[in-house]
Structure formats: structure tokens, C-alpha cells
């Protein structure tokens, strides 16, 4: 049976048990959020032995080479010695510079990194509070901007969003881990049609990708479709409308699923209005960001409508567990 040693202490590991659960059983808390191998909050480093291959899926080559792995995906079948300190050394310290409300349920959080934090527009990071609470958020800012920008959905009962939206978060020290993700503008095919589809705060990475593409400059048509459950979930409406006026190749569409009162906002299901507007997605580059089940549904639909899977960049947001 495989042995698991963490920071020099031997832990009990049941056959088939996840490292993250074995750590919890032993009272060792490590940051964790999605428990689905996506957010990379639970990154650990193996100091002896080889992490299971499936626990390194999606990690950067440089991290894999240093034996980093995801505790929520690792079921060791051979002896493994791990360190909880390795990942913290990768973190960049930062300070919360400002928090403002973009919409009834969306916060704009700006962060000032204390060390250089290199990323590409559209990637995501893990935000760690001092006590280890961790959540993954997409970057809405551009690398050329001094501050990092996140769009945080206020979730009822959500620990991180409640703290960020509260009185004491501004000025606090946090740590940043990452970046990760491939939801980025690719230069080189400047005539291609780009379709950006964001659900809720799925607009965040697209706000970065859109401005990156317009600055490239991308010459082909760019469409941005933003959907939310209610009109309250739509935001950056003035900014996107202004960009549409300034760029002939950019079109902005916003839809809410339902409305409780009179509204100027168009109502409709994003997958339905999107497919109705574009019967074929052949040759298009498609970005899908936001709530995971809807992103997966959209991915299937645009693929069946002719998009090549290689040209579909999906960034499903997985809720914290």
C-alpha cells in the first residue's frame, strides 16, 4: 500500500483516497476551492516519489517538472512525500486596492501586486486570503495596466465574496497564485470572426480578451454576447456600448433570462439567441466563459453548428465546494 508523508509526518492513506482528504483527516488544512482539478488552489509539491499523472493535468510544464500536483486529483498508488510549503513560494503577495460595485451582484476588485505578476489577458488566478481561504477568479485587466482587476459575483453565503464586499477588505494583504488558463486572444488570424460569450461574471476574462483583440488590432468581426439571469447581472454596459460606437467591427449583445419588472434589456436564453443569430459557426473562433453547465451546453451546440473544437476556448467556472 502507498505511504503518504507530508512535511515529514506519515499520514494514514486509504487505497484510492485523495491526498486532499487524507490531509483533512490528519487535520492539515491546505487551500482548496473547486475540488475538480480546475482552480489549482490545492497545489502541492512532491519532494520524493512521482505524483499520479492525472493530478498534473492542466499544470504548466514548469510546474510539472518541479513535481507540483493537485491534491484534489491525486490518488497515490506509490509512496509519496509531499511539502505544503512549496506552493506558497510561488505565490505573489498583493494588496486589495479597491472594491466597487459594478452591478447589484457583481464587485470589481482591484489588486496591486507587490511583485511582478505576469499574465495574458483572459487567464485566471487563485486569490488566497491570509487564513488560506482560496477562490479562483478570471482576470479582467490587461497586462499593461498597473492594477489587476477581478469581477466577483456576490454569492449568498459565499465566504470570499462576503469578505471582499465587506468594510475591511480594502488594504488587506492577499496572495496570488497562477496565472492559469488558455482563454486568450491569439494573434495571427486577424480576419477571423471572433465570438465572445460570457455568462454572468464570465464577462471578466472576455473584457480582457476583447480589449486585447481590439488593440492587436483584430480586423475581422468581433461579437460579444453577455447573458445574465436578471438585468441586475449585466454590467459594463456603458463601456461596451462606447466600444461598439468606436469600433465598426465590434458588436455587443446583452440578454437577461428573466425580468421582474419593466426593462430595456432584451430577454432570451443565450444559447438560443446565439444559435438563431448564427446558423453556422464554421471557421469562427469562439470563447465561452462562465457557469460550467451552460458553458458545456454552449460548447456542444457551437461544435454541432460547425465550430472546430480546436477553435473553441471554454472557461467553465466551477463553484467552490
Amino acid at each position: 500500500m502507498a505511504r503518504l508523508v507530508c512535511d515529514g509526518r506519515e499520514l494514514s492513506l486509504q487505497p484510492g483516497q485523495l491526498v486532499i482528504d487524507a490531509l483533512a483527516d490528519a487535520g492539515i488544512g491546505v487551500p482548496s476551492s473547486c475540488r475538480a482539478g480546475a482552480c489549482q488552489s490545492c497545489l502541492l509539491q512532491a519532494t520524493r516519489g512521482r505524483p499520479p499523472a492525472e493530478s498534473q493535468v492542466g499544470l504548466k510544464e514548469s510546474l510539472r517538472a518541479q513535481a507540483f500536483f493537485l491534491a484534489c486529483q491525486a490518488r497515490p498508488t506509490e509512496d509519496l512525500e509531499i511539502s505544503t510549503a512549496g506552493a506558497a513560494k510561488l505565490d505573489v503577495p498583493a494588496r486589495i486596492a479597491s472594491v466597487e460595485r459594478l452591478a447589484a451582484e457583481v464587485l470589481r476588485v482591484r489588486l496591486e501586486p507587490q511583485l511582478p505578476f505576469a499574465y495574458r489577458a483572459g487567464q485566471f488566478l487563485t486569490l488566497l486570503r491570509e487564513d488560506g481561504l482560496a477562490r479562483a477568479y478570471s482576470l479582467a485587466s490587461l497586462p499593461s495596466e498597473r492594477l489587476l482587476e477581478l469581477h466577483v459575483r456576490v454569492i449568498p453565503g459565499g465566504q470570499m465574496s462576503a469578505w471582499l464586499g465587506g468594510a475591511s477588505s480594502v488594504g488587506s494583504a492577499v496572495r496570488l497564485r497562477g496565472p492559469s488558463g488558455e482563454c486568450c486572444y491569439l494573434p495571427g488570424l486577424s480576419q477571423q470572426t471572433i465570438v465572445l460569450v460570457g455568462i454572468g461574471t464570465g464577462l471578466a476574462p472576455l473584457w480582457g480578451v476583447l480589449r486585447d483583440a481590439l488593440a492587436a488590432p483584430h480586423r475581422g468581426p468581433i461579437e460579444l454576447w453577455h447573458g445574465a439571469r436578471t438585468p441586475d447581472g449585466l454590467y459594463l454596459i456603458d463601456e461596451l456600448t462606447a466600444l461598439q460606437a468606436a469600433h465598426r467591427n465590434f458588436r455587443y449583445h446583452a440578454y437577461a433570462l428573466e425580468s421582474r419588472g419593466p426593462t430595456d434589456v432584451a430577454l432570451g436564453r443565450l444559447d438560443e439567441v446565439l444559435l438563431a443569430a448564427s446558423p453556422s459557426f464554421a471557421g469562427r473562433r469562439v470563447y465561452l466563459c462562465g457557469d460550467a453547465p451552460l458553458v458545456q451546453l454552449l460548447k456542444r451546440k457551437v461544435f454541432l453548428a460547425g465550430a472546430s473544437l480546436q477553435e473553441v476556448h471554454a472557461d467553465p467556472f466551477v463553484s467552490a465546494k
Binding site: F303, L304, Q310
Partner: peptide, 9 residues
């Protein structure tokens, strides 16, 4: 892509 689409349909 063509083959996979045929399977799903």
C-alpha cells in the same frame, strides 16, 4: 471534428 459531430448527432 466531422466524425465526432456525426457520432453526437
Amino acid at each position: 471534428d466531422v466524425f465526432y459531430r456525426k457520432m453526437l448527432l
